[in-house]
Design a protein around this nucleic acid. Structure first.
Lengths: 198, 198
DNA sequence: CGTTATCTCTGACACGTTGTCTAACCTACC
DNA sequence: GGTAGGTTAGACAACGTGTCAGAGATAACG
């Protein structure tokens, strides 16, 4: 990426690198928490001009994309740290829920319409690393008979995510406490998957 | 509503009435199917100027609100026509799903971020007539033991709606056919409610 | 009828945000 | 120290929302 593009051209300058990084960091903070923030505010938080933001991220949507990518990477790291793959399927599932739940809490952007919206092909591709892990889990559970196999893993993934959003929404609307919502979510998911209750 | 406001004032003119109705009809059509449509397009469809739209609906959000109210009324009529209340709970539930599913199909606006968005207090209030019927159904099922009573009816209502959105999204994304999505939705809901499978 | 209040239309403008452009000015790099 | 590359300040266009004033049409009322 930071290689020489043309045979006789210099490489990217270090201050450009720093600016781009500062902008992305600021965007993760600002947009992550306040999804409606304007480009101007991100620039300010990065200690940079609006034009400089555009120099590195040609449009607001592309900046948001970069933010989501960053958050996704964070999520993957958190999931891997939780060792989701070597446990009882049900236990792993609960861990998965726990980790992603925390992320929703930390980054309201993930609950935001612009990202949540239905026909978002990019959005799907972007979250793939996270959803893949869940889908793998579901397949494992269905194969072992721990989960019922009638509903397709792909649908169960979608359903899980959307229920997560709903639970987050209940908390945001003040209709449930975080603990209540998390508990309801866990139980709902287990039922949905046709898991044998413990 | 169309009464005389002040003792010595004339009543609302008939062409104003017609304009307002034309605007709302057009808005239901245009916004219902293309939620991102601009006020200008609604005005054109109503055969009226943009300013006239504003004369009757002071802002775009208020116009959207009116559209949703209209659709809600339609939905309630459809639900009542389906006699949701005098049947086996499970059967009634499946009817409820069927009716609302059709509505989602007909009015993409209902799936749209601006309406779907989480902390939407108005939105909740608006859909109340529809969700109330579902909640009543759930209570009935839980009381009769046909549904499990662990999860709260209010949460189950939220979960049902969000799963409906997800199913609609799968269809929109081309990952499922309408029939597949409807089937998956039905089964998911029944599991979620802890219904005894037939 | 005619009068009058109401409604619609035309045309204009303010506003906020996104995105582009240019010229001047810095500064990292060789 | 020269130069390519980066940042800035300052404009500006585009677009959608919402507002306003004035001229023209028309429904309601006496």
């Amino acid at each position: 990426m930071s290689e020489i593009t043309d045979g006789r051209r210099r490489r990217r300058r270090s201050d450009a690198e720093r600016s781009a990084a500062a902008v992305l960091d600021a965007a993760v903070e600002v947009l992550g928490r306040h999804p409606d923030a304007k480009v101007e505010q991100v620039a300010a938080a990065a200690g940079v001009t609006r034009q400089t933001v555009y120099a590195h991220y040609p449009s607001r949507p592309l900046l948001v994309t970069a933010v989501i990518d960053r958050i996704t990477a964070e999520s993957v790291a958190a999931l891997d740290a939780a060792h989701v793959d070597n446990r009882t399927v049900t236990e792993a599932l609960l861990r998965w829920l726990d980790v992603t739940w925390r992320l929703f809490d930390h980054y309201p952007l993930l609950l935001h319409p612009s990202v949540t919206a239905v026909g978002q092909a990019d959005s799907d591709r972007q979250h793939a690393p996270v959803t893949e892990r869940l889908e793998r889990l579901i397949r494992r559970g269905q194969a072992s008979g721990e989960f019922d196999g009638t509903l397709s893993p792909a649908w169960l993934v979608s359903a899980t995510i959307t229920l997560g959003h709903a639970a987050g929404g209940e908390v945001a609307a003040g209709r449930m406490t975080t603990a209540q919502a998390a508990a309801a979510l866990r139980q709902s998911i287990l039922r949905l998957y046709g898991a044998r209750e413990p």
